[in-house]
């Protein structure tokens, strides 16, 4: 390889090729993905999360929650995602179109959270219960006490104050970060049945079986 120019060009070319293939290729496929407007329901899915939830996503991101939690449900016959109640269907790219920084994650030291809001609603987990879990820790997840502050009690205690855990004359109140994080977690819903998300079921095989 005496020709430096060809060598240099070759290096550039192989990298550009992979970039064009993977990134531009995916962009061509998903770049203009739009929310799906359902005439029957009269609104588009996925629904936009409230502003506080977008702020919560930033808290989730900077605390490093993605080091233990994924947000991607795999299809029902791939792993136990459905059996664990993490989602009825697999996550698809359309679920994330409104998210500025999707937190897909790569590790499952704790449960998947892609559809956490649905799960919480089904199990009746309230905002204050979730805040208490965040303070105390749960199932091996440590409590994140720095997301709460002891505030001097003047007059009535705050509606958001946690019961117990406060010194006399003080109340234990979640910081705005904790509130945003909880709002974000409760906003995570992947329930709408997009056409591309229908669970792959080996029906044909079952019918054909003797």
């Amino acid at each position: 390889m005496k020709n430096g120019f060809i060598f240099f060009f070759g290096l550039f070319f192989v990298l550009a090729l992979s970039w064009a293939g993977l990134v531009l290729g995916t962009n061509a496929q998903l770049g203009d993905l739009a929310p799906f407007y359902d005439d029957m329901e009269g609104k588009a899915f996925p629904e936009r999360a409230p502003g506080i939830a977008s702020r919560g996503q930033l808290v989730y991101q900077e605390l490093g929650c993605a080091a233990c939690h994924t947000q991607q449900v795999r299809r029902p016959d791939f792993g136990s995602d459905k059996a664990r109640g993490w989602g009825e269907r697999q996550s698809v790219a359309r679920d994330y179109v409104h998210q500025k920084f999707p937190q897909l994650g790569q590790m499952r030291i704790g449960p998947d959270l892609a559809d956490f809001g649905t799960r919480a609603a089904r199990n009746g987990v309230s905002e204050s219960a979730l805040l208490a879990d965040l303070y105390n820790g749960k199932n091996g997840m440590p409590g994140y006490r720095f997301l709460f502050e002891q505030r001097k009690l003047t007059g009535e205690s705050s509606a958001k104050a946690l019961s117990g855990g406060a010194r006399a004359g003080y109340q234990l109140v979640p910081t705005p970060k904790a509130e945003a994080l909880v709002a974000y977690l409760l906003s995570l819903k992947q329930t709408y049945e997009f056409a591309e998300a229908r669970p792959y079921e080996p029906v044909a095989e079952a019918k054909g079986a003797h």
Binding site: N27, L30, L33, Y96, P102
Partner: peptide, 11 residues
């Protein structure tokens, strides 16, 4: 200039 949605994961 973050790209949209799950394309970020690909990048």
């Amino acid at each position: 200039l973050p790209v949209r949605g799950t394309l970020q994961a690909v990048v």
